[in-house]
Design a protein around this nucleic acid. Structure first.
Lengths: 209, 209
DNA sequence: CGCAAATCTGAACGTTGTCAAGATGAACTT
DNA sequence: AAGTTCATCTTGACAACGTTCAGATTTGCG
């Protein structure tokens, strides 16, 4: 008897329910937003009973973790792609910032799940931070390539964190209605994002002793 | 018959239930965190029936709005106080950033309600942005006093937004476990915060054309 | 004092997260 | 090939939640 799922383990009744649940969750998330995401709803969407997910996830939280995990992978991919497309290293840095925020604006529900997960665990996903081609390291490497070679490792680390914080802050705030007239004045969302990112320097310069 | 609440309207049965509910919510928030905050629980804590809050708030969301509103007022106060205590304008800028983050770390549950509210409405509270002694203007004014006089209004606006985004991003991320060793290396939370804020410049400088 | 409006209660409805007990099918052993 | 074992799924239940509605109660006003 043939098995539909060719890759590794498919030891199930359903085929691969774990996968199906995650995809159902993403579908609901995209269609109706994060507030509409219930475990029961996900089970319904996947065509199983409300208790079925508990054989694959300990918790509703664990399902969300899995969804967030995929989101972070997609984000890392988006960052790498943005870097590839950039012409100069300097431009790559701005492109990373814009790509980060754009990802959050194009997948608002997913990004929300991601950031809620991080807040709940008081940590960003380890794979984002640890291995060498992680998103975090992409940012750090780009900083170096764009002109921060001479700097101490500690400075580099702080600059990377600073960049990440700025991007995250901008991601959460760039949709605020208060900025809409300003965006029009600047001629679009992207110009606004680049403008804010570039003006981080003013704020920072002012603080230097 | 005398009324216990001397100020403005107290046309109630209970005294001032609206007030009592907000305070009950803050109590629960501080004691058990944002996940434990239910409307029924708030009513219980205030000693009324589960339906009573609906005569003062249309929604659970509106209760949270009210709580968030008070949070933003407290935040604005904390910022002004930090500015007062700073010796030089340059130092005031760093102090604002640190005070912002410190507020979020000292009132994590409240800050979370505040930022969830903003996200749900895709806007920051108007009073934070509009009137002249608002928190937003405090930041902008400090930027000017610290050396950004010659700059165009548009640049000033973008720099203010940049500062706010950075502070918010840092507020949400500074508690991450991944940074703990770095904090120790730097000799404490405050040094870490100042370090990150000051390194925003590196990130920004790298992006300049 | 009497009346209308504001305020609170009690009970109910639908939904959610979660769990325990049982049914069902697949995989492994012999 | 048969039987056993284990993972998977369902059924049914529980408590808690947000919300609503009809009715009781109190307040303030004329």
């Amino acid at each position: 008897m043939n098995k539909p799922a060719p890759v590794e383990s498919r030891p199930y009744h359903h085929g691969d329910l774990r996968r199906a649940l995650i995809e159902a969750a993403r579908r609901i998330l995209e269609a109706d937003g994060p507030a509409a995401l219930s475990l029961r709803g996900v089970a319904r969407e996947a065509g199983v009973s409300p208790a079925a997910p508990y054989h694959h996830f300990k918790d509703k939280g664990e399902l969300l973790d899995a969804v967030a995990h995929e989101g972070f992978e997609a984000l890392a991919e988006a960052l790498k792609e943005a870097k590839r497309d950039a012409e100069t290293p300097k431009d790559a840095m701005a492109a990373l910032g814009v790509a980060y925020v754009r990802f959050s604006r194009e997948n608002p529900a997913l990004y929300r799940v991601m950031s809620d997960c991080s807040r709940d665990k008081d940590a960003m996903p380890d794979h984002l931070h640890e291995n060498e081609d992680s998103a975090y390291c992409t940012v750090r490497n780009t900083l170096v390539e764009a002109g921060l070679e001479g700097v101490t490792p500690l400075d580099l680390e702080l600059a990377t964190i600073a960049a990440w914080c700025a991007a995250h802050g901008l991601a959460e705030m760039s949709g605020f209605r208060q900025f809409e007239t300003l965006k029009k004045e600047l001629g679009g969302e992207e110009a606004f994002l680049r403008g804010v990112l570039e003006h981080l320097g003013m704020f920072a310069k002012v603080m230097k002793d």
